[in-house]
């Protein structure tokens, strides 16, 4: 059964997503290569935390990624994120894959795949334009 919410990379964004999903009552697994990253999680976080190398597919499988309904990929390395997005969408066939790319041009490489990208640059750019247009209209 695919029921898990899988968060790879427990940075600021990953930890926030994991905390929120846990509060919503979903079963959450958080993965990071460093144990200290898990301090970002709330005390009330009720999911699993696993220290492993996410670039090793066997370790991900051991962590239970095959049972994931959604995978959120937020590690600090764009190439790792790209690789994980490709693996999740093609080899593991996970229905919902979200990935963060600092480099918006990585978007060319996930075209045609069932992957939803998040670009912090794009979000900042949109926000800036919104703020600017709001300020100018006053």
């Amino acid at each position: 059964m695919r029921t898990l919410t899988f968060v790879i990379g427990c940075g600021r964004l990953g930890a926030s997503i994991a905390n929120y999903a846990s509060q919503q009552g979903q079963s959450v697994v958080v993965i990071d290569s460093e144990k200290t990253s898990f301090t970002r999680l709330d005390d009330s976080f009720s999911g699993y935390t696993i220290v492993c190398d996410a670039t090793d597919l066997d370790e991900l499988r051991d962590a239970g990624i095959s049972n994931a309904k959604e995978v959120i990929i937020t590690t600090g390395n764009d190439n790792v994120n790209l690789f994980l997005a490709h693996v999740s969408a093609t080899i593991l066939g996970i229905p919902y894959v979200y990935v963060r790319f600092d480099d918006p041009e990585k978007g060319f490489l996930i075209q045609g795949l069932n992957v939803k990208p998040i670009y912090p640059f794009q979000l900042s750019w949109d926000r800036f334009n919104l703020l600017k247009s709001g300020a100018e209209s006053k």
Binding site: N77, N79, L82, F83, L109
Partner: peptide
């Protein structure tokens, strides 16, 4: 993974 990213960019 860096090599993977580079190869994918080059290919696609």
């Amino acid at each position: 993974t860096d090599n993977y990213g580079a190869c994918m960019m080059a290919k696609k």
